[in-house]
């Protein structure tokens, strides 16, 4: 147990990233609320970010990704912000047209 807990490796960071990723994915699958789904997406992106940071950390690996890990993580953060803005605009539009934010109601295109 102590061997698992004590020296922190890349694997431990990957574990946290995996938990966040899976939580986000399940969140996207189960929530009926548009905002809940959006939060799931944010969790997934953040889980990926943790992996980038772990592989880029000089503390954790001797031949790390170096700066590339951090640079890519920054791009992910910026794209996540952009995605949140568009998704919120869509949610607002949906609310304006249907007066609800339940995605189960979004079945206008069903044949």
């Amino acid at each position: 147990m102590i061997e698992f807990l004590e020296p922190i490796h890349v694997s431990h960071y990957l574990l946290v990233g995996a938990v966040m990723f899976v939580t986000g994915a399940v969140c996207m699958a189960t929530k009926r609320n548009v905002l809940g789904i959006l939060m799931g997406v944010e969790l997934v992106l953040n889980g990926a970010n943790i992996n980038f940071i772990a592989f880029g950390s000089k503390y954790l690996r001797s031949d790390s990704l170096g700066l590339d890990g951090q640079l890519i993580a920054l791009f992910v953060i910026v794209l996540a912000a952009a995605e949140a803005a568009v998704a919120l605009a869509i949610a607002l539009n949906f609310y304006n047209n249907h007066t609800t934010i339940d995605v189960d109601e979004a079945d206008d295109l069903r044949g």
């Binding site: 960071y13 946290v16 966040m20 905002l35 959006l38 939060m39 944010e42 953040n46 970010n49 943790i50 940071i53 772990a54 880029g56 950390s57 000089k58 503390y59 954790l60 890990g69 951090q70 993580a73 920054l74 953060i77 910026v78 996540a80 912000a81 949140a84 803005a85 919120l88």
Partner: peptide, 29 residues
């Protein structure tokens, strides 16, 4: 808390960025 993990892994700037943009963006949420 994951920004804290970033600081711990030595990625200060990304951690601060996370606090500013990610958390600030979620504020709008």
């Amino acid at each position: 808390a994951s920004a804290g993990l970033f600081f711990l892994a030595g990625a200060e700037f990304v951690g601060a960025m996370q606090l500013m943009i990610y958390v600030g963006g979620t504020l709008v949420l």
